[in-house]
């Protein structure tokens, strides 16, 4: 059994989220369990070698941002290798609220940030230039350890 990190996200309407995440980000549904009433019980979507689980608000402690005044306590990052700006337009076209437009960051990634229909914040990044540790330190004034 391989070792992984995975993230689970909670939605008031998880089935709508499955359709939206496919349309906006190109995630692919790889597993779905539904009960006899058609309610989503469990699901998984893949993107590259990554996987997210999309579920409902199954306890008071597992809530959609829509249910907690839009607050997020973590965000999921999507890493792509081409056409970040096109990715952003595709997400915008299906209703993503772009909260930070595409911009190239000091560490060499071009990124944008958006909110999905229930308020989950997603960051999308594409590496566009190689930046050395010295360059990054000069740009930020920070001491950086573990620069890859």
């Amino acid at each position: 059994m391989a070792v992984h990190l995975r993230s689970a996200l909670f939605y008031r309407d998880p089935k709508a989220a499955l359709a939206w995440l496919e349309a906006a980000f190109g995630f692919e549904l790889v597993l779905l369990l539904e009960d006899a009433e058609g309610n989503l019980v469990h699901s998984q979507m893949s993107f590259g070698d990554g996987l997210v689980m999309i579920g409902h608000q199954w306890s008071d402690l597992h809530q959609s941002p829509l249910s907690v005044d839009g607050r997020n306590t973590q965000t999921v990052h999507i890493e792509i290798d081409t056409d970040l700006d096109t990715h952003c337009e595709r997400a915008r076209a299906v209703g993503a609220e772009i909260i930070e437009d595409p911009a190239t960051q000091f560490y060499g990634d071009r990124t944008y940030r958006c909110r999905d229909p229930e308020g989950h914040i997603w960051t999308v990044a594409q590496s566009v230039q190689k930046v050395s540790r010295e360059e990054a330190e000069a740009a930020t004034g920070l001491k950086i350890t573990g620069w890859l």
Partner: peptide, 9 residues
Amino acid sequence: MSAKVYVAL
């Protein structure tokens, strides 16, 4: 309606 299991690859 009945429950369903879906997998894809």
